[in-house]
Computed example of a mutant assay.
Amino acid sequence: MDTTQNKKILTRGFGAKTGHVAFYIEHPPAILSYKNISKIIPLEGGEIDYINNQCGNGWRKIFNVFAKFLFAAQLPDHNITNFPSWQSYRDSALLQASSQEALLFSPPDFSIKSYNWHIIAGRTYAKSLLKDQIFTNSLIWLDDEFAVDTELNLIVSPFLDYRQLSNIKINRLTKIIKGN
């Protein structure tokens, strides 16, 4: 099955080039040095704070919710178990070279098997990708917020925001990934 419709996708974002999980969001931070990145780059220590200071509360929420999800999921072989809290993981390892996750600003490319799980953050973004036929329309919608394609290990979840991907929904996302 050709899920990319013969389109070459330029994968770009923050974090590891391979790993356990990649979240996909539509836009990078509104900082000139990130607007035109053309590959996956690991963040350096303190770079999350820099982005938060430059871009405000929206990006703080994205990083916090991402770290909270990873901490709740406790994915096998993920180095998150070495940290006492999601905050310490966020500040010391999230999206850095040694991490096993990515935050990507490009559509998923299923022709390469880089991540165990692909999570598109936000129903609106996912539906725009479906409309553009970036991947096949084989998603099973579990409800208005979550969809799964087990063949592609693809999940659509609420956006990385406290209200949209609340702690209860983080737990639901964790159960989906673990097959519960």
Rank of each mutant, 00 (worst) to 15 (best):
I9S: 14
I9K: 13
L10Y: 05
L10I: 04
L10R: 08
T11D: 13
T11F: 07
T11R: 15
R12T: 04
R12W: 08
G13C: 05
F14M: 01
G15I: 00
G15L: 05
G15S: 10
A16Q: 06
G19S: 03
G19R: 08
H20R: 05
H20T: 06
V21H: 12
V21I: 06
A22D: 04
A22N: 05
A22V: 00
A22S: 03
F23R: 05
F23E: 00
Y24D: 00
I25N: 06
I25H: 06
I25Y: 04
E26N: 08
P28M: 02
P29E: 02
P29A: 00
A30H: 03
A30K: 09
A30P: 10
A30F: 09
I31M: 11
S33A: 11
S33E: 14
S33C: 02
Y34L: 07
K35I: 10
K35H: 09
N36D: 15
I37K: 09
S38E: 14
K39R: 10
K39F: 14
I40L: 15
I41D: 14
I41Y: 14
L43A: 11
E44L: 12
G45W: 05
G46Q: 04
G46T: 00
E47W: 01
I48Q: 03
I48W: 06
N52Q: 08
N52H: 10
Q54A: 09
Q54N: 10
Q54T: 11
Q54F: 06
C55I: 09
C55L: 04
C55W: 04
G56S: 09
N57C: 07
N57P: 01
N57I: 12
G58C: 10
G58T: 10
W59R: 14
W59E: 09
F63H: 10
F63G: 08
N64W: 05
V65Y: 15
V65E: 13
F66W: 12
K68L: 04
K68P: 01
K68H: 01
L70A: 00
F71P: 09
A72M: 04
A72P: 08
A73W: 13
Q74R: 12
L75R: 09
P76Y: 10
P76F: 12
D77P: 05
H78M: 03
N79P: 07
T81H: 15
T81L: 14
F83C: 09
P84T: 11
P84H: 13
P84C: 12
P84Q: 14
P84F: 15
S85Q: 12
S85A: 09
W86M: 08
W86S: 11
W86N: 09
Q87H: 08
Y89K: 02
D91E: 11
D91A: 04
D91G: 05
A93F: 00
A93V: 03
L94T: 06
L95F: 02
Q96W: 00
